[in-house]
Design a protein around this nucleic acid. Structure first.
Lengths: 192, 192
DNA sequence: ATTATCTTTGTTAGTGTTCACTAACTTGGT
DNA sequence: ACCAAGTTAGTGAACACTAACAAAGATAAT
């Protein structure tokens, strides 16, 4: 899909956005950071927008394993736990992702980028929705609260946790804190 | 605090950010939208950064009433509900806020702006923390889950709801959907 | 094995456009 | 007469991107 050089450009772009903000992602900074000239970038991407699109596609590829590991037949509470922890693990291993991934607003000016970003997010939501719904049917998850609310709590809390981790300068262990959040979420949605 | 003209500049800046993204907040667009010349802006703010600082200060002023209405002696669950609904009400009445308020990443390049934005957010968190802690002490809120997790669920779910509302083009009623989320949150944290 | 050709990937130097901001002047109210 | 708040015209710097050329490696003909 992406050549070695393209991957290097994408990863460097992510690094720049994460450390200095998207305003500092200029062709000049990007080329300097890699150690090539500006026009060399255009041998690998048609324009800057294509680079941003590639960044989003790159996220998608990297995040896919988090959902792939789910086993639909397993206990739904365990699946939610796995869903959360796998996501947190990937973010934890790719710290630069955190700052970029929740800054949808940064891509606001380009219709296509918003759509791509939203699609990526919605994909995760839909997977979680399937788990929650089946959990409620199997009477593993309480049904006196709407599945939509549960999804909003799970994803909302998870995203906030990641944001807090990123904003704090990663002073706490994301996966450990995630496990605490996970077990608390489990307690409140489980059927007694 | 802010003169009439300054307020107009701030509100127009928010409008531009909300509709076209922060990349389109240029002195030219801002001046054109107001109907004055670019240099006229500089009669009211020293530079563009001061305008962005004013935008954040403006949010702070507008959001304050949401916390001011809380009654510390009241039932903590009612207080949480009021906390959420008052916030949603203000966002609902100022739809442009939504797109700007959660785009902290946009201000990433300016140290001071991040700090100001974070302070604003943390203020809300601390107020909610006080409510939750006292609710657990009064045995109105269950204590087998950490207050931190509860705060993350409440604020996380609320922020996600606002994001979804904003991203969807406001196709649903934020306050009605908020009430549903609120009552579900209440059910799961209440002591039975 | 050597030479010729093509393709890929890089370079230097420069384009027009847009940016935030300024100098200097004007107008209108007190 | 003064001062706040506007104007026109223009600044240098930074932006994404391009034209033209150079080097190096792979392929293929001699």
């Amino acid at each position: 899909m992406f050549s070695k050089r393209q991957q290097q450009i994408i990863e460097t772009a992510i690094k720049i956005i994460a450390t200095n903000g998207i305003q500092n992602l200029t062709t000049k900074n990007l080329a300097n950071e890699i150690g090539i000239s500006e026009p060399a970038l255009y041998r690998h991407f048609n324009n800057k927008l294509e680079i941003l699109k590639a960044v989003i596609a790159y996220f998608k590829i990297k995040m896919q394993p988090a959902s792939a590991k789910l086993n639909k037949s397993a206990n739904s509470l365990n699946n939610i736990e796995k869903f959360m922890l796998e996501h947190l693990k990937i973010i934890s291993q790719n710290p630069d992702f955190a700052k970029v991934i929740f800054s949808e607003a940064n891509f606001q000016n380009e219709e296509n980028l918003i759509l791509k970003m939203n699609n990526m997010m919605n994909q995760s939501h839909k997977i979680l929705e399937t788990i929650v719904r089946s959990g409620q049917q199997k009477n593993e998850i309480r049904s006196d609260i709407s599945s939509l609310s549960i999804i909003r709590m799970v994803i909302g809390a998870m995203r906030l946790l990641i944001t807090q981790w990123s904003m704090s300068g990663k002073i706490f262990n994301l996966e450990i804190e995630g496990k605490q959040l996970c077990s608390d979420l489990r307690k409140i949605i489980v059927v007694n």
